[in-house]
Design a protein around this nucleic acid. Structure first.
Lengths: 212, 212
DNA sequence: TAGATTGTTAATCGATTAACAATC
DNA sequence: TAGATTGTTAATCGATTAACAATC
């Protein structure tokens, strides 16, 4: 359980997890770093280096036990527990995320949706009623919330961010197209869709497939 | 117009573009690498290195002209032209993306949406009627399409990917939770929401704010 | 002119790859 | 045992930071 794992490694972890899950589904019980590297388009060296940041999960002459490694990475990713999430912004994106079952399956539970638009308040999404944003502060005080999902226009972020900070939210999954200024105690993960699209157009106009 | 721009640099370009746009909006006409670095939480050195990969946009003793630099980066990102996009998958996510006006504003035009679900076919999203996926091949042959947006379950990707490849699509914006196997001529940009969320839970469970 | 700030070279830092002894 | 493959150290490669001469 080392400290100072680089971001590059962290970003590869979910991908390892995904590939190991696929292997499991296909009934493959063992895998060598070499074989996994070929499938994932990495080097075997890199895989062994990455995994050894967290422990010795393999066995010389054998490789890695898929199920064991899968469980280890699951635990490394913090998936042994569940998380309570609230969605700020009940528009298209907020509703789409609330409807997406894959998150729930992995232990991320949406417990509330907030919006300030009276037309949206009261609508039910997957059994969750969109609540008035004015109740956010009280909700945070009375419920255990781990992650706030920001799915609202960037112009409105400043209206809710102070409330989240004041209530010591642990994590923010930010879909708004701004970089948030938050205290160090809050972990922010950004999904900037527009940035992603511009990266694509850059590469299209240069015609290089320097993927990922 | 160098070759071999690293992915790290490419990923910073949209962020430069965004910050410069903000500066423009605030009527700021010049900026030094130092000032921009402070705002963006980068080093001045890195900014100058990044920009000089593409040209000499600054002036000693003065800094950078915001509008000029903004336009340069716009052009570097390939935003001097428009792109035609089709969305494969007319579910929640596909509809959300079609509704999102920011993309249109930057020159990304959605020209069609496809699905195989009879319940969705015929529904209009922003004036776009969801079409039967069986018409995809013909559509690609008769229309100029730059980017296909994959907003469908991973299980269904294999049903449409061959058609896209056969018709020489230039770019794929992939929201499906699989890594695509495509020829080098196709540029793929992945948005793996689940991976992003797992990255967040990893960091939450480790409690380190090694942001980005 | 003097001060500011770039473009660019050199130094440092970190991440990836290669190599190999240890060992299952 | 012999072969395979890990864990780990060393070598390489690339990206970031520092420094500074050039110059507006």
């Amino acid at each position: 359980m080392d400290k100072d794992i680089s971001i590059a490694v962290i970003k590869r972890l979910p991908r390892y997890y995904r590939y190991l899950g696929d292997l499991l589904e296909h009934g493959i019980t063992r895998i060598s770093s070499n074989d996994l590297a070929r499938r994932m388009n990495l080097t075997a060296s890199q895989i062994r280096q990455d995994l050894n940041k967290f422990g010795c999960f393999g066995q010389q002459g054998y490789g890695y036990n898929v199920e064991l490694l899968y469980d280890e990475i699951k635990s490394i990713l913090g998936l042994q527990r569940t998380y309570n999430l609230i969605i700020i912004g009940g528009g298209n994106l907020g509703q789409t995320l609330a409807n997406y079952s894959n998150f729930q399956k992995r232990g991320f539970k949406f417990t509330a949706i907030f919006d300030k638009n009276p037309r949206l308040i009261g609508i039910k999404i997957r059994g969750l009623e969109i609540m008035d944003i004015s109740g956010l502060d009280a909700y945070l005080k009375n419920n255990s919330v781990d992650i706030a999902v920001l799915a609202l226009p960037k112009a409105n972020v400043s209206e809710v961010l102070p409330t989240l900070i004041r209530n010591n939210i642990s994590g923010i999954w930010n879909f708004s197209h701004v970089d948030l200024k938050t205290p160090d105690s809050i972990t922010v993960e950004n999904v900037h869709l527009t940035d992603s699209l511009l990266t694509l157009s850059y590469r299209l106009s240069r015609n290089g497939k320097d993927s990922l």
